[in-house]
Design a protein around this nucleic acid. Structure first.
Length: 580
RNA sequence: GGGCGCGUGGCCUAGCUUGGAUGGGGCGCUGGCCUUCUAAGCCAGCAGUCGCGGGUUCGAAUCCCGCCGCGUCCGCCA
């Protein structure tokens, strides 16, 4: 058992620099926090300190200040030497120490390399929360992929995490579906090519929606269902739930394909049944921003910086029933009781609603305010996706297509050496990995126009590129296992050093990705790491290294790389094939 | 009309929170590398007014103001 949590090399290096710099800077009258940056290229150093602000204080040119400081810093355990250029003090790490320490840590921690110490804090990540009225389409697929990745990242960073899917069982969408299931004869509906409950059910929804728009009677009946649900009528809620439950199962199935699972499904009706939403209403009625219009209660959001045509946030209807956002407030109060940090993954269309909930929570004195991660829509080249109009690409179709495409690719390359079964297995890992990666590599706030060629990208900046690097490493280790703890002094080739330096950065990347809710940083990093490994692979023969010492050292490095790639891919929910 | 987000080579994208040292990648295109650990790879080349205009600064893709374009929201819907 690994007793103590080993400290990561770059943390130690950074710490040493700051300790050396502090007294020097103090004596020059610079009291600010010391911020270190990474030079643009490794030849210039491993970390640097900019002297521009300091040059003002001491009234000397930055280059002179940098030179003075560089001369005063002496080599230590981690600082090998310093250098001044262009107004920067550049610090070079002790490479020999870095190499041995980094490889030691990685081989020792193995599956936990990059993870951080336990935080003793609970996080609830709410994501997906899609209306269970049909299959997930790719327009919404960003949500579960981002959400699940955040769950993984928070766990790895040391938090206790629970993932939640908020089931909107009181909404109009599910009421329409329930009406359809009850009133529409299945044989009148078009056939589906997919025998999966969500695909079968969405036809009822689409048809019921159509009838509702054409026929006032139908609309009335559907509204009646909604009303009964909102009042907490057990029988109606059960009827609706029975209607949508299979669709939810279908959604779960699709997500399971992508290795996405939830710890808890929370039905919206829970907060009507336990009356907690009524408590929210009572509390909101008492604020100084509260008003009433035709019997409906609202909060004026204008003083909170919300603007637009209408700034009133209605939290009851004139008949006293609550609205979606009101119940969402109750849900968040409940979550706050069970966690220290709340993360919500939401589409950009929910920005105002999230703001309403946040303001309401503050007004009634909630101590934990959720942090939202918004993502922009995935659209089709012709515009938005729409389940109603059938203008959609379903996630299931994307999955099938990705796996099929991957199958062709594997077959093309390895068809004559691998069994059909093995090809299928690899194709699945590659196809599914590509879907996740192609979403995760892009910042959430950027719009994505769905194009098959991008979604199924298998080369360059893609999952298979990284998986391939891992497979290459595995292939070497399969032929000749790493001897474990060895003397890594022979690792002096520039590709080896560059590779180790990247490996050592992994924990920083995770910390950064978690702190800012930005999984794309990990996606980026893994690409860089894989690319660097490919260069090492080209220049440094491992099995046929000149001598046994070098070979063993390189094997350890390959092992360390394979561990880091695998851990990183795991965080993104992508599998690391040993062969492809 | 107002709020929020986005705008980087033909296409996609990193960097923007915390301003600094030559703006990184990928796709596509052109040319080269498989008798050596899997070529889903590697190397070289072509390709950029960082939407436009102003400002702050020793220094702006990054901060501030204005404008333009795209997305999204402004329901007693969810």
């Amino acid at each position: 058992m690994v007793a103590a949590f080993m400290q990561y090399p770059f943390d130690l290096f950074r710490k040493e620099i700051i300790e050396s710099l502090r007294p020097i800077l103090d004596s020059l009258g610079y009291m600010d926090e010391i911020r270190l940056e990474t030079p643009p290229s490794p030849e210039m150093g491993d970390l640097s300190f900019a002297c521009f602000p300091l040059s003002k204080i001491v009234k000397k040119p930055p280059s002179d200040v940098a030179k003075d400081i560089a001369n005063k810093v002496s080599p230590k355990e981690w600082i090998d030497h310093t250098d001044a250029s262009g107004g920067y003090v550049n610090f070079f790490i002790n490479v020999e120490r870095l190499v041995s320490h980094t490889i030691d840590v990685i081989l020792m921690q193995d599956k936990t390399y990059g993870s951080l110490e336990k935080k003793q804090k609970k996080v609830i990540v709410e994501h997906t929360s899609a209306n269970p009225n049909g299959p997930l389409h790719v327009g919404r697929a960003r949500n579960p992929i981002l959400g699940d990745t955040l769950v993984r990242i928070y766990r790895y960073t040391g938090y206790d995490v629970e993932s939640q899917f908020y089931v909107d069982d009181l909404g109009k969408q599910v009421a329409i579906l329930a009406w359809g299931v009850k009133n529409i004869k299945p044989e009148t509906l078009p056939k589906t090519d997919r025998d999966k409950p969500d695909h079968l059910l969405v036809r009822f929804y689409q048809q019921a929606y159509k009838l509702m728009s054409e026929n006032k009677e139908v609309a009335k009946e559907i509204n009646e269902i909604v009303k009964l649900c909102e009042r907490g009528d057990e029988e109606t809620i059960r009827m609706v739930r029975d209607a949508f439950e299979p669709a939810l199962q279908g959604i779960k199935q699709s997500l399971a394909e992508l290795d996405i699972h939830f710890d808890r499904f929370v039905p919206e009706s829970q907060f009507v049944k336990d009356k907690s939403v009524d408590e929210v209403v009572e509390a909101l009625k008492k604020t100084e921003y509260t008003g009433k219009e035709d019997g409906a209660w609202y909060i004026d959001l204008k003083p909170f910086g919300v603007s637009g045509r209408n700034t009133k946030f209605f939290f009851t209807r004139s008949d006293g029933t609550t609205l979606y956002a009101t119940r969402d407030v109750a849900y968040h109060l409940w979550k706050a009781k069970h966690a220290d940090i709340l993360i919500n993954v939401l589409g950009e269309d929910h920005k105002l609603e999230a703001k309403q909930v946040e303001i309401a929570l503050k007004l009634i004195g909630a101590k934990t305010i959720p942090k939202a991660v918004f993502y922009s829509f995935v659209t089709l080249p012709g515009g938005k996706m729409s389940t109603r109009r059938g203008r959609v690409v379903y996630l299931d179709d994307l999955i099938d297509e990705a796996v099929a495409r991957a199958f062709e690719e594997v077959k093309k390359r390895r068809g004559n050496e691998l069994t059909e079964e093995k090809i299928k297995h690899i194709a699945k890992l590659v196809g599914l990995g590509s879907i996740r990666y192609n979403i995760l590599k892009i910042q959430p706030e950027k719009d994505i126009v769905f194009k098959w060629e991008d979604a199924l990208n298998f080369e360059g900046y893609s999952a298979p590129f990284i998986q391939y690097a891992h497979a290459r490493a595995s292939s070497i280790l399969r032929k000749m296992p790493s001897p474990g703890k060895v003397d890594v002094k022979p690792l002096t080739h520039q590709q080896e050093i560059a590779l180790v330096k990247l490996l050592a950065r992994f924990p920083d990347v995770i910390k950064e990705a978690c702190g800012n809710n930005r999984p794309n940083l990990i996606a980026n990093y893994l690409y860089d790491l894989a690319a660097q490994f490919n260069q090492f692979y080209r220049d440094c023969p491992v099995i046929k290294a000149e001598n046994k010492k070098l070979r063993d050292a390189r094997l350890a490095l390959v092992q360390a790389t394979s561990i880091t790639l695998r851990n990183g891919l795991y965080l993104l929910g992508i599998s690391a094939p040993e062969e492809m």
